[in-house]
Design a protein around this nucleic acid. Structure first.
Length: 108
DNA sequence: GTCCTGACGAGTA
DNA sequence: GTACTCGCCAGGA
């Protein structure tokens, strides 16, 4: 390892932010990107979660679109699985594919 | 070594 | 109100 990088890869930051999302709350890609230090890296957030090396520790099911829509490309089995995981955490839904961000949006 | 794509978001026309 | 473009970063071909 030698010299530690003063600024860890954005991906590591993304994972850290996602892991910080409390149970019962959800965050948007843009929100995670901003907390990770890159307000406009929302696209990369998806990529980072796609390569998600720690799918169990990284609750990517708590990350949704800015509209509250579930990620169709969810890697655990699809939006259907994501919805069930969120329902297990008592996350309010306004539709089969949309969470109620107004009530469960995570505010760091 | 270089170019393109990819779980998106926000701003502007 | 709707549609399009730009920006972010990393990995793969």
């Amino acid at each position: 390892m030698g010299a530690f990088n003063e600024k860890p890869p954005l991906a590591e930051r993304v994972y850290e932010v996602v892991r910080s999302i409390p149970c019962g709350c959800v965050a948007t890609y843009g929100q995670v990107a901003r907390l990770a230090g890159s307000p406009r890296a929302a696209r990369f957030v998806g990529q980072a979660l796609h390569h998600n090396p720690h799918p169990i520790e990284t609750p990517c099911h708590r990350v949704v679109f800015s509209d509250g829509k579930l990620a169709e490309h969810f890697g655990f089995g699809g939006a259907s699985v994501q919805r069930e995981l969120l329902e297990e955490e008592h996350v309010p839904f306004i539709d089969d594919m949309h969470v109620d961000l107004a009530r469960c949006r995570w505010s760091a």
